[in-house]
Design a binder for these strands. Sequence first.
DNA 1: AATGAAAGTCGTCGGTT
DNA 2: AACCGACGACTTTCATT
Lengths: 160, 160
Amino acid sequence: MANRKIRPERAYEPKGIDALDLRILAELQVDARVSFAELGRRVALSAPAVADRVQRLEEAGVITGYRAEVDPRALGFPVTVMVRIRPAIRELQRISEIAQEVPQIVECYRMTGDDCFYFTMHLRAVDELEPILDLFTPYGHTTTSLIHTAPVPRRPLPLE
Amino acid sequence: MANRKIRPERAYEPKGIDALDLRILAELQVDARVSFAELGRRVALSAPAVADRVQRLEEAGVITGYRAEVDPRALGFPVTVMVRIRPAIRELQRISEIAQEVPQIVECYRMTGDDCFYFTMHLRAVDELEPILDLFTPYGHTTTSLIHTAPVPRRPLPLE
DNA sequence: AATGAAAGTCGTCGGTT
DNA sequence: AACCGACGACTTTCATT
C-alpha cells in the first residue's frame, strides 16, 4: 500500500535571504532586463556582487524565471476566459491532463472548494470557447467567465 | 448626461507584427534576460536589428514589461488565496479601491457572472486572511479558496 | 528595415581583503 | 561576502545598402 503520510516538502521560512536580496528582487520584479551594473548602482553593490547574489537566488529557487509580459489583445487574442471546474469523482487527473494539452491555457490551479480546479486562457475569438469547454464537460461541471479588465494591474510581491 | 456610447478602445488585429517578431516574443517570454546578441543568433538577425524590433514592440504596447518571477513560498508567503466577490449593488468601485490598497493582492480582475470580481493574494500566514476579507465583506459576498498547486505551470502565449 | 564597424559599457573571471 | 582590475562580449550609434 502506498505511503499516505502527508507532510510539506519543505519548510517555508525565507532562510539566507537578507534585506539586500529583497531589494534586488524588488528591482528585478519590476524590470527583469536591468543590467547587473545598473542593479549594483541601485543597491550600492558592485556588479560581480549582485551577479553572485542573483545567481544564488536562482539556484535556491527564489527566482523561478524571467518573463517578458505581453498584451494578448495586441497579439490577436482579444478574449480572456477564466474557467472553474467541479470535477466528477476521480476525474481530476484527467482534467489536469487535458488542461496541459490545450495551449491556449496559460495558467491552471488546484484549490479548495467545490470548484477545486481553475484555469485562464486567451482566445482568438469566442468561437474557440465551445470546443475547448467540450473537452472538459465529460469530466466535470464548468463555470466560465469572460474577463473584462484588471482593476489592479499585476504587481510584484510586497517585499519591503 | 454622460456619453453612453460603448465601443472598443482599439481594434484587436495584430498589425505590423511579422513572424520574426513572434519568434522574438516567444524567446523573451521564456527568458527575458537573454542578450540582444544571443536573441539575434536565435532568430538569424543582427543585434541592432533585434534591438530595434524589441524597442518597437515595447513602444507599441505589445511587450508590457519584463518581470522576474519569484516563488512566494521561498519568500515567506506560504499561503496563496483566490477570492471571488459578488459585489453589493453600486459597491463595485469601492471594492476595486480596497483591492488596490491591499499590497498582498497581486492581481485582480473584473469578469462576467454572479461573482464579477476576483483577486489573488499571497499571505505570510492564514491569520492574515480574516482581516483582509473583513475589508471586503461590507461591500459584497466573498468566496475564498486556498490555492494548492499548479497542474499546468504558468506558460507563454502560443505564438507559433 | 537590416547590416557592419566603432566607441563605450557590461559581464565575468581570478586574485585580494 | 564583496571588491578590484582586466579581457572578451555586448549595446548602441551611425553611415551605408
